[in-house]
């Protein structure tokens, strides 16, 4: 029953947040300077033609009415249509979403996979040369902007060695080979930066464990240094790393734009920037709502992960 109540609470919070977010997004988008009709027709257009276009797109009607229409539409799965092309927002978001989802969905797990050993080595060797050098390397990796990493990787692997392609995107369904060969560098760029970022949290988590009494117990019962630290430290590390991954996932969905631009990939971030530039407000609102939903979902999954990781949270009591 407690579970059911918690689940109900979750759903209510989710709905309220989405509603509030929709109002905020709508408000901000409407407050943006510039006007889609004006932006479409150009600065030299006569006021009459601009007004005519505004009437044609329904922009002359009251804000509240347009907001209501938009919300009701979304409830029915209709996110509106682009003013410019008349295409539905859903069909416009689909393909870029796939690009970004692949990019983020592949690079986050790989980043974690790289960060775990880096952080473990950094923690265990924090007073020795190998740990210090790993730690220094992650700092350097963190200091380099992701587009710069992308540019360097492009020069080496796409221009000089010609192993992979560094521009554009081909859907998986069209050609798996082309898809893979074009995703390697963008994914690698994100992984390099993200792994360095995550490795710092992994390292800090493991260093905490090294000073814990239960790590000493683990050693006293016969675990060797490394295996004991992994076995009895990974859950402690997971708690903090899951939090960071949740935050990173959310920001990466849009933040991937730097990589998308570097590699000329038509992702979500690119779509958003393009839509803002053209004042294609329906698309901007749609992407905004999608991100809100994504962040909420990720947060929910993070909370679930906490429960799985730390048994003390299940009954709410700790001593």
């Amino acid at each position: 029953m407690a579970l059911l109540r918690a689940a109900t609470r979750r759903v209510v919070i989710f709905l309220v947040t989405v509603l509030v977010a929709s109002a905020v997004i709508f408000g901000i988008v409407q407050a943006l300077p510039g006007d889609v009709a004006l932006a479409t027709l150009g600065m030299g257009a006569s006021p009459e033609s601009v007004d005519a276009l505004r009437v044609q797109w329904g922009l002359d009607r009251p804000l509240a009415l347009r907001y209501l229409e938009w919300v009701v539409g979304m409830v029915h799965g209709d996110f509106g249509a682009s003013y410019l092309t008349g295409q539905s927002v859903v069909s416009q978001i689909g393909p870029p979403l796939a690009v970004t989802a692949w990019l983020v969905g592949l690079s986050m797990p790989l980043s974690l996979l790289a960060a775990l050993p880096l952080g473990l080595v950094g923690a265990m060797g924090r007073r020795r040369w190998f740990g210090v050098s790993v730690n220094a390397a992650t700092h350097v990796g963190l200091a380099i902007p992701v587009f710069f990493v992308g540019a360097i990787l492009t020069i080496i692997f796409a221009v000089k060695l010609r192993w992979v392609r560094a521009n554009g995107y081909v859907p998986l369904t069209t050609s798996p080979g082309e898809w893979a060969i074009r995703l390697v560098l963008p994914v690698a760029s994100i992984v390099i930066v993200q792994a360095c970022f995550l490795a710092r949290y992994v390292r800090a988590g493991f260093i905490d464990v090294l000073t814990e009494d239960y790590y000493r117990t683990a050693r006293a019962v016969g675990w060797t240094r490394w295996r004991g630290l992994w076995r009895h430290g990974i859950r402690n590390v997971a708690t903090s790393v899951v939090t960071v991954i949740g935050l990173q996932l959310a920001s990466l969905l849009v933040g991937a734009i730097l990589v998308e631009q570097t590699f000329a990939m038509p992702g979500l971030g690119s779509l958003l920037v393009q839509a803002v530039r053209r004042r294609d407000l329906m698309v901007v609102q749609g992407v905004g709502m999608l991100l809100v939903a994504a962040v909420l979902t990720v947060n929910f999954l993070v909370d679930l992960a906490y429960l799985a990781i730390d048994p003390r949270l299940k009954r709410g009591g700790r001593s």
Partner: peptide, 14 residues
Amino acid sequence: TMVFQEPMTALDPT
């Protein structure tokens, strides 16, 4: 083997 002083913290909480 060893028996430690701090029973509250000597066991892995997870």
